[in-house]
Amino acid sequence: MSPVDGPGVSNPNLPVDPALVEGRVPDRVPEQVPELHEVDCPPDLKEHIETLMGRYPDRKSASIPALWAVQRLYGWCTPEGIRQAAAVMRVTPAYLESVASFYDLLHTEPVGTHKVAVCTNISCWMRGADELLEAFRSAAGGDEDIFVTGFECLGACDIAPMVSIDERYFGPLEAAEAETAIEQLRTGKDVLPEKALEKRPLAGDAGSTGGVPRAGDADA
């Protein structure tokens, strides 16, 4: 029986969905889960992702950790890296891409080797974050190896204005210290060792003032 003259098709003036006549043929082949031999996954990465999957009751839970592993290896979530992770995890690359694109820390475009995130949220803004971001941008001066961005609150408003450099926190900073930090990054030195969050005592034990003079209420 052709669906066109079946029950429910009463008004011949209504347009007919061609799929009812021709059947539903997808216009593209749906993306497949890549096979391991197709993707040339480095053995270390494969083993690492397998360990990650083993930590969760459901292997799919390892997708963010697996993308972190890809990003650590290649600098960003490259299409090849995503295919490799997808093959190990038995999911489609599109699935992992959709996950990666949701999260600010996972990069689906190339970024520099060094990542500099200047917080520009409320408490840092009050203490001169906009000037600090500008200072980092001009100090990095288009160097493709150093990726400078403004960022939302990094959970360190006590050291405002602050910056996260290669996943470690520093503050409170004067705009002039941006130049020093970038120079230290370029020459492979320890970055602003005396400003590392790790070394700070508890606020109540510090006894000194915590911040730098505030830059007033300027805003863009």
């Binding site: 009050m126 408003c157 006590d158 050291i159 405002a160 606020a203 109540g204 510090a206 000194s208 915590g210």
Partner: peptide, 13 residues
């Protein structure tokens, strides 16, 4: 309590 913004000794108390 995290105290921050316009204070002289921002921090956790």
């Amino acid at each position: 309590v995290s105290v921050s913004g316009c204070v002289q000794r921002p921090g956790n108390y």
